[in-house]
Design a protein around this nucleic acid. Sequence first.
DNA 1: GTTTCATGTCATGTTTTCTAACATATAACT
DNA 2: AGTTATATGTTAGAAAACATGACATGAAAC
Lengths: 126, 126
Amino acid sequence: MKEKELRRSLAVLPIGTVMKLTNLTARQIRYYETQELIKPERSDGNRRLYSLNDVDRLLEIKDYLDEGLNMAGIREIFMQKQLDQEHRKEQQSKTLTDDDVREILHDEILRAGGLQGMSPTSPKLR
Amino acid sequence: MKEKELRRSLAVLPIGTVMKLTNLTARQIRYYETQELIKPERSDGNRRLYSLNDVDRLLEIKDYLDEGLNMAGIREIFMQKQLDQEHRKEQQSKTLTDDDVREILHDEILRAGGLQGMSPTSPKLR
DNA sequence: GTTTCATGTCATGTTTTCTAACATATAACT
DNA sequence: AGTTATATGTTAGAAAACATGACATGAAAC
């Protein structure tokens, strides 16, 4: 699903569209930017360009505000989330290398022991 | 997958973005509109607004042009596709009513035969 | 060598967005 | 009560993007 991620993170929406999609005013959207809650791209002509992910994030911000959080609180939550996500990715890459280890082990067994009864293409292995 | 369809058909992109995404000039994009190959929405201020589906369609148009088709040909192909799709939908709804028929039959069996050995909440039934 | 088609280019007007500044309501604090 | 901070409204002026319409043009078709 890499193409989907790309689509969601492509900065293609002008602020007017984002206003409609989020029901926020331009003032609010820009203010959240000064508070470093979002960081839209810029066009050649310096216009802000938002991605679908940005829209989601703005909707999140709205929710948190409704719950009474302030800018600092929301900023903190977002940083938390980011850390969490990085952690997950790290875990995933670790898992992957575990699999790699298994594969390497498998190869070594094959080479060391020769084929004693097991077919090299045995379904149990990979 | 209804939300996804909605997302893909939401008119949110200004022509400048579409130009970058398709590598077409504004002139070309507007011309294809006069040829009724696309029909973007309009904002309150009369700006054209395109959906992701529109972008896909424009990329298709590009391909067909590269293959030597002209506007009329492409228009024809699109109409063809639309018919085809409508046909598919009709077929699907027919299939659905077949299922309905089965369900009705099932209900009737229950009512007619009474509960001879089958529990009314038997997992096999619905 | 005209026509037609698809596109380029230019002019002019309108809409959208930008930044920056000043204003204000609400909540928090002393 | 008076002050302060926060989040947002409002306004002004400039720049960018977009709309429409007209005229221009290269390539293909006839």
